[in-house]
């Protein structure tokens, strides 16, 4: 059995806001349940995928791990995030900074907006080294160039003197990856790392991430994406999220060959898959993702589900283990 490096227990994160989605605005702040009761483990040396549509709570889960939820309006209302025996949520903002970037680091979706536009790449990279370790500027610069080269940035010595705006999206993402890997973190959280990039560049970045993981040895990656193709190519284990809850969790093989939750199978069927002939129309899921301010009381997916029963509206099913390490939250598999 592999060692757990991160254990998330019963995590719930809410956002307070005045409106309740479409329609009339409420007077008081009401909580929107972005993530409710999410528990999962991350093991050493694995790539865990979290897949779901926008509003399913996958990014909020990731931000919660490093306590990056802006408060207000957001708040982590319950849960424990245990990294190597230490609950990250109990740490003060000073203490958690030792973990951010050094032990657990993160790559964000849009490299263009996560780099500071008025600082040269050089300054931003050296800052990482100088704020975490006791390195002087010259040493930091040397290390930065080395990292950028490893991340496959061409002309690293020259590029490091430039501003982010003069780099392409792919190059910016390489800089972000280089920064995130500065201290060889044992856990890397990648939030839609390739969504803003072209397919050919996406392939380069995914390859780079696998290479770096192989070189670093026992590091783990949490890969957040809505692209099932990336999940199939990169991940070992997958969590499917919907309406702020984990709906299904399985290893990649089981998820694609034997999806249990109606949402998972509908999602797999609804994407146009390259190279497969479609007879006429694509399968679709009717309706849309529920509003977090107005979640249905029972199963979060029941309004769009083709197998809906009476009980689905009233009672939320439990996450249940059907076969080894294959969990699903659905009434079809209960009782």
């Amino acid at each position: 059995m592999k060692n757990k490096i991160l254990e998330i227990k019963n995590l719930s994160t809410v956002f307070y806001a005045k409106h309740s989605g479409q329609g009339k605005e409420t007077k008081e702040l009401i909580p929107g349940k972005a993530v409710s009761g999410v528990s999962f483990d991350v093991y050493e040396d694995e790539v865990l995928g979290i897949v779901g549509e926008s509003g399913s709570g996958k990014s909020v889960t990731a931000y919660s791990i490093l306590n990056l939820i802006p408060n207000p309006p957001g708040k982590i209302v319950s849960g424990e995030i245990i990294y190597r025996g230490i609950d990250l949520l109990k740490l003060s903002s000073e203490e958690i900074r030792k973990y951010r970037g050094a032990e657990i680091s993160m790559i964000f979706q849009e490299p263009g907006t996560s780099l500071n536009p008025v600082m040269r790449i050089e300054e931003q990279m050296c800052e990482v080294f100088m704020s975490h370790g006791k390195t002087d500027r010259a040493e930091a610069l040397k290390k930065s160039i080395e990292l950028l080269k490893r991340a496959g940035l061409p002309d690293a010595e020259k590029r490091i003197k430039e501003y982010p705006s003069s780099l392409s999206g792919g190059m910016q993402q390489r800089v972000m990856i280089a920064m995130a890997l500065a201290f060889r973190p044992s856990l890397l959280i990648a939030d839609e790392p390739t969504t803003a990039l072209d397919v050919t560049v996406q392939a380069q970045i995914l390859d780079l991430m696998s290479d770096i993981k192989r070189e670093n040895g026992k590091s783990s990656i949490i890969m957040i994406t809505h692209n099932l193709g990336i999940i199939a190519e990169m991940c070992d284990r997958v969590l499917v999220m919907y309406g702020g809850k984990i709906q299904e969790s399985a290893n990649v093989k089981d998820l694609f060959e034997n999806p249990l939750h109606p949402y998972t199978s509908a999602m797999i069927k609804s994407i146009p898959c390259f190279g497969k002939k479609h007879e006429g129309r694509l399968n679709t899921i009717p309706g849309m993702v529920p509003d977090i301010f107005n979640l249905p009381p029972g199963c979060k997916f029941c309004n769009r589900c083709e197998f809906k029963k009476d009980i689905c509206e009233k009672k939320e099913p439990e996450l249940k283990e059907i076969s080894k390490e294959h969990f699903v939250r659905c009434h079809l598999y209960e009782g």
Partner: peptide, 21 residues
């Protein structure tokens, strides 16, 4: 070849990866 395919494969397929932008 750079399109990620949403299907499980036990062996990783060979991809043509272009260099640069």
């Amino acid at each position: 070849s750079s399109i990620p395919v949403p299907e499980y494969k036990s062996e990783k397929r060979e991809r043509i990866i272009l260099k640069g932008d």
